[in-house]
Amino acid sequence: MIAIIDYGMGNLYSVSKALERMNVEYTISNDIDVLNEASGYILPGVGSFKDAMSILNETGLAQFVKDIAESEKPLLGICLGMQLLFEQSEENGLAKGLSLLPGNVVKIPEDAGEEKLKVPHMGWNDLTIKNESPLLENLETNFAYFVHSYYVKSEEAEVILATAPYGVDVPAVVGRGNVFGTQFHPEKSSGLGLSILQNFIKMVEGEKR
């Protein structure tokens, strides 16, 4: 079973429906006893980094997510949920993240490319795979739908599994060990997104056996 960690800041509906369409058993909860029963986790998130971290810290879910990372159970952060996996973010003033992956969340520069870029980075962009990962096996297409103003800057190349070009190389898929993240919403990224979710589910099911 996959658990969607509900800390009050996610678009839980579309990701849960995507799991339903794939006939995957899931639960949505903020109760650590219930969450403990699951064999894999999705950390969703829409909104501000700082607010999300305060809720995670207040509810004890921050420690719970750190414990997942210590276990063998796969964890997938989506959008803000991915950014939370890193060390800190400058969105609305500096805030500390979960520090499960090395790197910081910074604003996308408008002037990094040849011409001035629009921020938010919004729309379909193509992925370049940087590091092989079971999460990125057998992808149908290259395009994912991005909608974000902040991106992860990491010095450690091995945690960046795929990037999308937008002035800078925007980390699109990240991961190390059992901790993964996608900057885009896989449930909104058509064939590619659904393949990534399928791959994640396979990992979770493999873990169960």
């Binding site: 919403h185 909104k188 058509s190």
Partner: peptide
């Protein structure tokens, strides 16, 4: 719509 569609 969100339940059945995988585009934004």
């Amino acid at each position: 719509v969100a339940g059945q569609l995988a585009i934004p």
